[in-house]
Nucleic acid binder design. Structure first.
Length: 257
DNA sequence: TCCCCGTTTCCTGCTT
DNA sequence: AAAGCAGGAAACGGGG
């Protein structure tokens, strides 16, 4: 179950303005989603500072990996946040202490809200106090939401990215060779495959099978071949920015490929 | 219900 | 010889 975050920006200022985050110049055509959260800033009512401090607090408490949003739809001001480093228990804890919301309910929650996403994909909108509610004149006509991708199962490359983002924790399984170039190595290939199998509920997953899925990525430009290298892969044009964002290149001096 | 996508499974042959 | 790589083919499961 993935939480969805709704956010309203009454004066059309982009969310990242309030979060002190860099602006993402162009909408991502290819956004990781198995481990992301949607942020719809087109409607609803929210106090910017509340949301900002909430996200920053989540970030400070390691509940989110980083608070850099991907813009999904600039007009609608829909962003996605990477919650890839959520530990399962942390996610549960967040969901437990944050009240679920519906479109109809006007009861004001005390804080900016993460809430479980509904299976029927209805729009979830956060509400706050009456005085901070958006005036109707400021409301934009509601356009259809882009395909909801926040609840679908994770892709393999997203899973690998997730592991790489927790490099310290997973260094015995997978590591960056050059983060800047998006090159990584499967240190324990069968171990990674096993974890992948656990994630996808495929207990018979092996590296042989997982690597077939990785090879399909070559033709989709999700991965690029690294010639004459074993267990070394490189994120391709479609994924490199996403996979390597928010990181330094401190591990990039290896020359083993 | 059908179709598409992203795998998963199995396979053969090749390379390191 | 073992492990990994390459890629064809078919099946599968989830989502639209």
């Amino acid at each position: 179950m993935k939480p969805i975050l709704s956010y309203s920006s009454p004066d059309d200022r982009p969310l990242n303005t309030y979060l002190g985050l860099p602006h993402v110049d162009e909408p991502m055509g290819y956004v990781s989603s198995g481990s992301t959260e949607a942020c719809d800033v087109s409607e609803g009512s929210f106090d910017h500072e509340d949301l900002a401090s909430s996200l920053i607090s989540l970030n400070d408490n390691d509940l989110i990996d980083h608070a850099l949003p991907d813009i999904l739809d600039e007009d609608l001001r829909i962003f996605e946040f990477d919650f890839g480093s959520y530990a399962a228990n942390q996610l549960t804890a967040v969901e437990d202490r944050i009240a679920p919301l519906t479109e109809e309910v006007v009861e004001p929650p005390p804080t900016p809200t993460l809430c479980p996403e509904n299976v029927d994909d209805r729009v979830v909108t956060t509400k706050k106090t009456a005085q901070s509610k958006r005036k109707s004149s400021l409301k934009r006509p509601r356009r259809p939401r882009p395909r909801n991708r926040g609840n679908r199962s994770i892709h393999l490359w997203e899973f690998l990215k997730e592991m790489l983002n927790n490099s310290e924790e997973n260094k015995s399984y997978i590591k960056w060779i050059s983060k800047r170039e998006g090159i990584f190595q499967l240190v324990n290939s069968s171990g990674v495959a096993k974890l992948w199998g656990q994630r996808k509920n495929r207990k018979n997953m092996t590296y042989e099978k997982m690597s077939r899925a990785l090879r399909y990525y070559y033709e989709k430009d999700i991965l690029e071949r690294v010639p004459n290298a074993r267990l070394i892969y490189k994120f391709g044009g479609k994924t490199r920015v996403i996979a390597t964002e928010n990181g330094d290149d401190s591990l990039s001096d290896s020359s083993e490929h």
